[in-house]
Design a binder for these strands. Structure first.
Lengths: 144, 144
DNA sequence: GTGTCTGCAAATCTTTTGCAACAAT
DNA sequence: ATTGTTGCAAAAGATTTGCAGACAC
């Protein structure tokens, strides 16, 4: 968290409670790509006092400072995730198996997808920055 | 186009000029994954007389009739694509490469994923029924 | 103390809905 | 003739902006 504060200061931004709270939520949800509304909802859940306008502005500011990665899905709405300065280069591993019966969410190890991404980068000349991969079905228990 | 009209009739919907116009635009942009606004814009470009509310309602109605596939990119805004009834069997082979710069959406061939699904079924004993796979990044052009 | 940041409310933009007129069957 | 459909305008939702007071430095 030090690292983010340092970068904000370097960029001439002030360190406020609201900004720290937003960073904290992003930190606690590294594997999600949260929308502004979702960040706001989590802040309220945690009992933080913040206005939604501040959340919108803070996320934009963090994006400009390259502290969060802004997923632009269709040019209309955005989702944010904290840039991981430790795990450099690679942004994130996020792929789930969702059981349609018991709603369990299992995580898939990255190996398969690394391989798949390499195939995609080669075949489609597409630079994969991030992914959102969900398989819906029945887990081991519910298969019976 | 006959096929779509037939299905609409079977479902008790009336065949109106507006509905045909929307289907026509979707047909002319099969690989485009248009948002409601974009469908509306293309209709106006073509000189069609239609209200935006009708476009919203028509796309929702087509989705309920399974004539279009509704891409849920982030749970907030949607894009639509005409279901291809000629290409039978593979209804939901939707795995996309989404360019975060120009918003192009490229389709990945199913082969990779079939293989991936088999690995998942074996390793996680998870029965895959459906999937939602999106890779975000930069397309060939925007990589530069 | 100075300049930035925040929260509110107003403004703007997107999507949905109610309703009277209209069109398809 | 009957019932569903359309377009408008109003409503509801989402995002941005202006501004006065509050806060970080």
């Amino acid at each position: 968290m030090e690292k983010y504060v340092q970068i904000l200061k370097e960029n001439g931004f002030k360190i406020t409670n609201q900004r720290m709270d937003v960073l904290e939520v992003l930190e606690e949800n590294r594997k999600e790509h949260l929308s502004t509304e979702e960040v706001f909802a989590k802040l309220i859940e945690k009992g933080k006092e913040i206005g939604i306008a501040t959340v919108y502005r803070t996320l934009q500011m963090l994006e400009e400072s390259d502290l969060v990665y802004k997923l632009d899905l269709d040019g209309k709405s955005y989702r944010y995730e904290l840039v991981d300065y430790l795990e450099k280069g690679k942004v994130h591993q996020h792929h789930h198996l969702i059981c349609e019966n018991c709603h369990a969410i299992l995580e898939v190890q990255g190996d398969f997808l690394d391989e798949l991404e390499q195939m995609i980068e080669k075949k489609y000349k597409f630079k994969v920055m991030n992914h959102d991969v969900k398989f819906y079905g029945l887990c081991e228990h519910c298969k019976k």
